[in-house]
Amino acid sequence: MTDKEIIVQLRSGNEYCLKYLYQHLEMVKSWVKQNSGNDDDAYDIFQEAIIIFYKNLMEGNYESKSKISTYLFGICKRQWLNQLNRRLKYEKPNDNFVALDNRQDDGFEIEFTCGRQSLKKYIDEALEKLGEPCKKLLETSIYLKLRMQEIAELFNYSSAHSARQQKLRCIKRLREQMSYELIIQLK
């Protein structure tokens, strides 16, 4: 797939095409390895770079002047150099904990609220109850920050306006399932 083709496909909602970007991973791997990292480091920052690229593309902030590979590589370089700096600054001999510092939100976080309900679980359950297409719509517009015009195309709404209405109605329904007290109290 060419860059142009990938961008057209991604913009039309075909997220699956992101897989073709992994052809550029090897290049990042070999660069990271030359700069005191390993394959896993390379995979992690490459993953981050894809996320940044995808979010920018979907938000309309990606200018396709350079090749996607150059763009990704640029992000990876910056990220890896930042990380190296951080490591050099904080790392003491035999200290392996530093590597954890940028992983707070990867789903690895420890549940301190064992045994009782957490805010996370409470909202998750409400979202599950909400069902599709609301769930997907909220995720795409809140996480990917897709514009209403694009959301309308993706979810087959007649216009940006009706997509917006739909989104607001979904949020309202979600909110109605939850109590103010619980949202404030739960951690």
Partner: peptide, 14 residues
């Protein structure tokens, strides 16, 4: 309330 809900939606989507 919405701030918390949005934060959670964003985290879980990520």
């Amino acid at each position: 309330v919405y701030k918390r809900i949005y934060k959670r939606i964003e985290d879980r989507a990520a």
